[in-house]
Amino acid sequence: MLWLMPCVLFCLISHLAKAQADSASEPKRKSLLSVQFHIKNNQVPYIKVQTKIKSDKGLFAAENIPVSIYMDDDLSKDALVGQVKTNTAGQAALGIPASLAANWKTKSSHTFFAHTDSSSAFDAVSQEVAVVLAKIELDTVVDGANRSLVATVLKNEGESWVPMNEVELRVGVKRFGGYLTVGEEDTYTTDSTGKVEVAFVRENLPGDKLGKLEVFALVDDNEEIGSLETGIVVPWGVVHQYKNDFGERSLWAPPRKAPIWLLLMAYGCIIAVWSMIIYLFTRILQIRRLGKVRN
């Protein structure tokens, strides 16, 4: 039966190696491309593309995929916004270049075309998105102790900006890693004047050194106007003062600032055990001495 053990060991190690190899191998795939139009603070428009591979094992980001983006006129050299390569998350973003500024201003709606070429890593895929130029105006209303944010969504029609109703948007305060809603609801819908008013219900929210918070109104991937994000700074937070406790005794402090209880416990144990060891060495020396005396 003993001869089985090396075989079992070999199988186990082979299985481990195979498990790693399997996870790295390429299964059957479907290439996916998505295009989104974004505009930040009503000033900086950009196009965001994302490439993904769908396979038997799930949905994975496709990295290092070149994507060509055109504005209004598909595959025309003059309409080329640019070419980008996706990152490890399969994403890439591209601003509108100055060469297309004149074209950008002449129309109130634009269509963006994105293409990928066929390669070993990704198939040839095309995708487009049509958007109407729009903006979000964000303002504050303070009435005694009551504070509100008013967001207005407007779209461009020729020379003028007209309100947009029935647009779903979020109003949030920027926190580490995302947005915290400022009101009671997650999203709000604009009325016939294109406005929403959201009461700021967050009390004692830590702000910066001056107590300032960044609040934003966001429209996420709207079919007509794309993704918009507008922010302002408001002094509604609590002043945050950083207290440096690095010099105090703690488990994370430098060695000389270790907690007293830890020093007592650790060195107490070390001294007790090593005293005993030293005592035992003296016993061995005593045994040696006794042996020499007998000689």
């Binding site: 005593q286 006794l290 042996g291 000689n295």
Partner: peptide
């Protein structure tokens, strides 16, 4: 081990040391 003569005193010290080691 040249110093080990197997005297009762050596055994006494050794046994006691082994006991201390076993406990510790």
């Amino acid at each position: 081990g040249s110093f080990w003569k197997g005297t009762p005193e050596q055994f006494r010290i050794s046994n006691r040391s082994i006991f201390i080691l076993c406990v510790s």
